[in-house]
C-alpha cells in the first residue's frame, strides 16, 4: 500500500488520485506495489534484471498503460529497464513518470531505461513527468534513457516534462525511424537553484518519407545550468526539425548544441535555437492588466512551458 507521500507523488507525476484505468504497474521504493494487466496488455517482470516487459497485442486501440515510479526513501538508487513491445495497428497511451521525495541526507536516484518497439501503423502517445520534492540535503537524481524503434508508418509522440525539484538529470533519447514513420517530441523543462539538466536527442531518419519534430521549451532560473543537444540524422528522403527555445533568468546558463547530419540529397533538416530573457514588453503588457511583475513572470513561464 502506498503512503501519503507516495500518493502525493503519484498525483504530481501521473495526475492519479486512485488506481488508473487500464493496465498499470506502480513501483514504489524499488519494488512493485501493484499491477494490473488487461486482455490486450500484458506486463511481466524481467528475470535477469530489474524492470518489466510490457506487451501490447496487435490491434489494441484506445487503451492505456500507466507505469509510475515513486521514491520516498532517502539513499535509494536504482536502474530499471522497461521494454514496450507494441504490436501492429495499435493506438495506445503510455503514462510514465518518476516522483522522488527526498527528505534525508543521502542522494536518491532513479535511472529508467525505456525501450519502445513500435509495430507497423501503430500510434503511441507517451507522457512522462518527472518531479522532485523534499527538503533534505540528499540530491534527487533522474537519468532517463528512452530508445524508440519505429516500424513502417508508425507514429510516436513523446511528451516529457520536468518542472520542479530534480537536482540533476541527464536525459538521453535515441530514435530510429523506418519508412513513413513519424516522431514528435515535446520537452518542457524548468531548472532552478543549482540544478543541472542535460537533454541529448539523436534521431536517425532511416526510412523513406520519415519525419521528426523535436521541440524543447525550457526555463533556466537561479544558478541552474541546462544543455540541449539535438542531432537529427537524415539517411534518406526525409524531413527533420529540431527546435530549442529557452528563457534564461537570474544567473542561469543555457547551452544549445544543434547537429544536423544529412547523408542523402533529399534529406531536409532544420534546426532552430533561441535563448533569451523574458521580453520586457511581455511583462509590461501583463502588468498593465493588473498583475505584479512576479505574477506576470509566472504567467509567461507557465504558458511557455505548457
Amino acid at each position: 500500500m502506498l503512503d501519503a507521500i507516495q500518493r502525493q507523488l503519484l498525483e504530481e507525476i501521473a495526475g492519479l488520485h486512485k488506481v488508473p484505468e487500464g493496465a498499470y504497474n506502480i513501483r514504489a521504493n524499488g519494488a512493485t506495489d501493484s499491477r494490473k494487466t488487461t486482455a490486450h496488455i500484458d506486463i511481466v517482470s524481467k528475470t535477469d534484471k530489474s524492470g518489466i516487459d510490457i506487451r501490447i497485442q496487435d490491434g489494441t486501440r484506445g487503451e492505456s498503460v500507466h507505469i509510475p515510479v515513486v521514491l520516498s526513501e532517502s539513499g535509494l538508487s536504482e536502474t530499471v529497464y522497461n521494454d514496450f513491445y507494441i504490436g501492429r495497428d495499435c493506438d495506445v497511451t503510455i503514462v510514465a513518470g518518476c516522483g522522488i521525495s527526498n527528505c534525508g541526507k543521502q542522494d536518491s536516484e532513479h535511472d529508467g531505461v525505456h525501450r519502445f518497439f513500435i509495430g507497423e501503423n501503430s500510434r503511441v502517445r507517451y507522457v512522462e513527468k518527472h518531479y522532485g520534492t523534499g527538503d533534505g540535503e540528499g540530491k534527487r537524481i533522474l537519468n532517463p534513457v528512452t530508445e524508440v524503434y519505429q516500424e513502417k508508418n508508425s507514429y510516436a509522440e513523446l511528451e516529457m516534462t520536468q518542472i520542479k525539484g530534480v537536482d540533476s538529470t541527464v536525459r538521453t533519447t535515441v530514435a530510429e525511424l523506418a519508412e513513413g514513420a513519424q516522431l514528435i517530441v515535446k520537452e518542457a523543462l524548468m531548472t532552478h537553484g543549482s540544478q543541472k539538466a542535460a537533454s541529448i536527442y539523436t534521431v536517425h531518419l532511416n526510412g523513406e518519407g520519415s519525419r521528426t519534430d523535436v521541440v524543447s521549451r525550457s526555463v533556466a532560473r537561479g544558478d541552474s545550468a541546462q544543455s540541449f543537444e539535438a542531432a537529427v540524422i537524415g539517411n534518406t528522403r526525409c524531413r527533420g526539425h529540431a527546435e530549442c527555445d529557452a528563457i534564461i533568468m537570474d544567473r542561469a546558463r543555457v547551452i544549445a548544441v544543434p547537429r544536423l547530419e544529412a547523408n542523402h540529397v533529399d534529406a531536409q533538416l532544420i534546426h532552430e535555437a533561441a535563448i533569451g530573457k523574458i521580453a520586457g514588453e511581455q511583462l509590461i503588457k501583463l502588468m498593465s492588466l493588473g498583475l505584479t511583475e512576479a505574477e506576470a513572470e509566472e504567467q509567461i513561464i507557465s504558458g511557455f512551458l505548457r
Binding site: 521580453a279 514588453e281 511581455q282 503588457k285 509567461i300 504558458g303
Partner: peptide, 27 residues
C-alpha cells in the same frame, strides 16, 4: 508602477500588441 495604475483603473491597448508563446486568448 504600471501594476498600481492598472489596479486604479487605467487600461492600455498597445499600438503594437505583444505576442506570447503558450498564452492562449482565453488566458
Amino acid at each position: 508602477s504600471v501594476t498600481e495604475r492598472a489596479r486604479r483603473g487605467i487600461s492600455f491597448a498597445f499600438q503594437q500588441p505583444v505576442r506570447f508563446k503558450g498564452i492562449r486568448v482565453i488566458d
